[in-house]
Design a protein around this nucleic acid. Structure first.
Length: 569
RNA sequence: CGGUGAUUAGCGCAGCUUGGUAGCGCACUUGGUUUGGGUCCAAGGGGUCGCAAGUUCGAAUCUUGCAUCACCGACCA
């Protein structure tokens, strides 16, 4: 490609509303342009990268035995009613109507469509297992799109779905896909980790996420410092403290704590360690028909934070997790938030394992501006259950039994699930077995955020000059940068010949034939991140040499013109 | 959904306090100059000042409403 015939679209200045480095560089290098919140146009350079990622994903899917299909983005609402997700999915699901006033959705994912298809197409166990995938645009009406391509509303996703007669067969395919995902991220040249994950709104049993490690990631990942253990913090188990709970030594005592609200304030005011306090959060319980909404108390050690995912998985607690309103708090506890405690509370109390290990602790007294000191479980509050409801923190013992927890940020670029029969059952998707009996299929599903990978790759590979693409996804492998081509016939001839030769060899080459000064060309190609620059200048032509600059290592070297092709061997 | 801030040329911004019909840098066009790290000079083109209403002889500027965009928060006991 000649730059004179190309849409280079680089920017010198960083657009004001781009926050993270990948978003800034994608705009400056002319990869994407914003259309509206969370919606982007891919420019030629960006699209080349996107397609490369897509092709690597596609090759590995084919190698894993998955079959490519393409499903519609617009899906009839009744499919979603059949699966139950019309009600469950929430406002991220964009709903719309056609001219006949029939309801549709813009697909955020395709379990319904594929399960319906398989229910219609597959009728015998002999056709199983089946694994199909597509690379297609998804639409999720995100509450807050941000970080450019990273959390857009419309984005490119590879989604695969597998269908099986037995759980054993599903597990086998799950492992094949797990391995395929590792190969994909290896080939992409990314620093990534597979982590144990929660299944979220998709539903199902076993699940792993694949995270690209980066400071700007939106997820916290808990690692063990002594083993391979890695889990999304949503899922990382906080173990109970070891040993017996210390015995009570203090009497339960009311203390006045006027206008002291937060747990830090209480600890400071009473001159105790936050770790010796318990905080009590009121959330809504699971509705029982014909009765007022129940309120549940969750008790945590003062320095710990509630894990909403763990909490909403508890049978008593409503899902999604909803905090009680001020009125509901007053009705249930007889005081305002800030003075609630488990002692004498007349609602179900669920205590985190660490909070349950406290003795002589500080907590609210269910009277405004009053707290207890010297509170003790069983003696002062007998009715409670213990559960793991907090986030792990650095230094906690790892749930794998070896080492301690460290926490890093990650960008979720892949997620695989063992779904089980949730959709197959709802959509009546089954086959005849060898014994001639109808059997519901069991499913797996496997997603990769193709467009998000482009942003994640930049987060991991950049410097102050711009993007440093891993070779596998660089838009061009090499750039020809001629010095003063307009004046030097020799430079022009050499550059043109080099361009011709590289093109003939099938190498993706961008030839900067603009009438620009060298600095402009260098800056542009460094911004775009082309891995190799061939600098052709008058001063080296007497020796039949040109300069090779490596964008990744920064190394410069001279090479004979006749030897250039050896760079691509 | 809550909070904060922004909206003036493709991009980055000034002008607004104190109302008089819009400016700077980059980018773009033309001519010249320069040519191994974002040259320099000159001349140009491009804006319903987010939208709507109001105040006023007169509104980018003051008032009100709305919209859009961004960031933070949605963990508060």
């Amino acid at each position: 490609m000649r730059t004179s015939q190309y849409l280079l679209s680089t920017l010198k200045e960083t657009p004001a509303n781009a926050e993270v480095i990948s978003h800034q560089l994608m705009l400056r290098a002319g990869l994407v342009r914003n259309l509206a919140s969370g919606l982007y146009t891919w420019l030629p350079t960006g699209l080349k990268v996107l397609r490369k990622v897509e092709n690597i994903v596609r090759e590995e899917m084919e190698r894993a035995g998955a079959l490519e299909v393409l499903m519609p983005m617009v899906q009839p609402a009744d499919l979603w009613e059949e699966s139950g997700r019309w009600d469950d999915y929430g406002p991220e699901l964009l709903r719309l109507k056609d001219r006949h006033n029939r309801p549709f959705v813009l697909g955020p994912t395709h379990e319904e469509v594929i399960t319906k298809l398989v229910a219609n197409e597959i009728s015998s166990y002999k056709q199983l297992p089946l694994n199909v995938y597509q690379v297609q645009s998804k639409f999720r009406d995100e509450i807050r799109p941000r970080f450019g391509i990273m959390r857009g509303r419309e984005f490119l996703m590879k989604d695969a779905y597998s269908f099986h007669l037995t759980d054993e067969c599903l597990e086998k395919t799950y492992q094949i896909m797990f391995d395929a995902y590792c190969r994909i991220f290896d080939r992409l040249g990314l620093d990534y980790r597979p982590v144990i994950a929660d299944t979220g709104s998709i539903g199902g049993e076993a699940s792993h996420e694949f995270h690209v490690l980066a400071e700007s990631g939106e997820d916290d990942i808990a690692f063990s410092d002594a083993s391979d253990f890695a889990a999304n913090i949503e899922k990382a188990e906080a173990l109970a403290p070891t040993g017996e709970r210390p015995a009570a030594t203090q009497d339960l005592t009311e203390v006045s704590t006027p206008s002291v609200k937060t747990i830090e304030d209480v600890a400071n005011f009473l001159k105790v360690d936050v770790k010796a306090t318990a905080k009590t959060l009121l959330v809504l319980g699971e509705e029982v028909k014909g009765q007022p909404t129940p309120v549940i108390a969750l008790v945590l050690r003062g320095d710990h934070q509630l894990n909403e995912i763990k909490a909403e998985h508890l049978p008593l607690v409503a899902s999604p997790l909803t905090f009680a309103s001020d009125e509901q708090i007053l009705a249930a506890a007889g005081c305002d938030a800030g003075s609630i405690g488990p002692v004498g509370l007349n609602i179900p109390v669920i205590v985190d394992r660490s909070a349950a290990h406290l003795a002589d602790f500080v907590c609210g007294a269910n009277k405004n501006d009053v707290h207890f000191t010297g509170a003790n479980w069983d003696r002062d509050c007998a009715e409670y259950t213990v559960a793991d409801i907090r986030n792990v923190v650095e230094g906690d013992p790892s749930p794998c039994g070896s080492g301690n927890i460290i926490i890093k940020r990650g960008i979720e670029v892949g997620h695989i699930f063992q779904l089980g029969q949730k959709y197959a059952e709802a959509m009546n998707c089954g086959v005849l077995t060898e014994q001639g009996k109808n059997q519901t299929l069991t499913m797996g599903c496997y997603g990769i955020g193709v467009s998000r990978i482009v942003a994640a790759a930049i987060e991991q590979n950049h410097d102050k000059y711009g993007i440093k693409w891993p070779a596998a996804i660089a838009p061009y492998q090499v750039a020809i940068v001629p010095m003063n081509m307009a004046k030097s016939a020799r430079v022009k001839e050499t550059a043109e010949a080099m361009y011709e030769q590289l093109q003939q060899a099938g190498i993706e080459v961008i030839f900067d034939d603009r009438k620009e000064r060298p600095g402009v060309m260098f800056a542009d190609h460094e911004l775009i991140g082309t891995p190799l620059l061939l600098v052709i200048g008058e001063r080296n032509l007497d020796n039949q040499e040109l300069e090779v600059k490596n964008r990744i290592t920064g190394e410069k070297s001279m090479i004979k013109i006749e030897d250039v092709m050896s760079l691509f061997a």
